[in-house]
């Protein structure tokens, strides 16, 4: 029979995710990716490899993209996270974040499994004031694997979203 969980193998964890507070008593070995999915019920964050290679689990920890499968939930205690669900906060029902809208228009996804990770990794590029070459955009997405798109349309989507965010269009994009 499995031994009982010792006291120092459990902790109370309180984390802010997309501006809301979540707390739970968890085993210290619980991965942050599993906390997000199973304790907070936010299943937009996907899990592919659980060893840091695929990028599907990427979330933003205090604004920085990180692998949630390589962090323990206890390490996020008292900190603030953003997941893909947070991207549409404050938008009208059915409205998408500019990066999501650009992925949609440019066919930056097919099966969609990798997409939340790409969005979390690439969102900071929309705020980057510098001109970015295709090569720099490709470097920014090199840590995320996609088996479907061949990446080209993801690069196109980033460029479109950056154009729109940096020079907001007068008329909203047609659907």
């Amino acid at each position: 029979m499995e031994r009982a969980v010792a006291d120092d193998e459990r902790r109370r964890v309180e984390v802010e995710i997309n501006g809301e507070s979540y707390s739970a008593d968890v085993e210290t070995r619980l991965l942050l990716s599993d906390f997000i999915r199973h304790e907070a019920g936010l299943t937009g964050t996907h899990v592919g490899c659980e060893h840091g290679v695929c990028g599907a689990c990427t979330v933003q920890l205090d604004g920085e993209p990180v692998r949630s499968c390589l962090l323990f939930a206890v390490q996020a205690h008292g900190r603030s996270l953003r997941t893909v669900e947070g991207m549409t906060d404050g938008l009208a029902d059915g409205e998408l974040h500019p990066l999501q809208q650009a992925f949609h228009e440019k066919h930056g996804l097919q099966c969609g499994f990798c997409t939340p990770g790409f969005l979390m990794s690439l969102e900071p590029l929309l705020l980057d004031e510098r001109e970015l070459s295709d090569r720099e955009i490709r470097e920014a997405l090199a840590g995320n694997l996609c088996r479907c798109t061949g990446y080209q349309n993801i690069v196109e989507a980033v460029k479109l979203a950056r154009e729109r965010v940096r020079e907001p269009a007068e008329t909203p994009p047609s659907p």
Binding site: V5, A6, D8, E9, R11, E27, T28, R29, L31, D34, E50, H51, F72, V74, Q75
Partner: peptide, 11 residues
């Protein structure tokens, strides 16, 4: 692919 149990310390 889940880690084994461990006691966690955050000094």
């Amino acid at each position: 692919m889940k880690p084994p149990r461990f006691a966690y310390h955050d000094p």
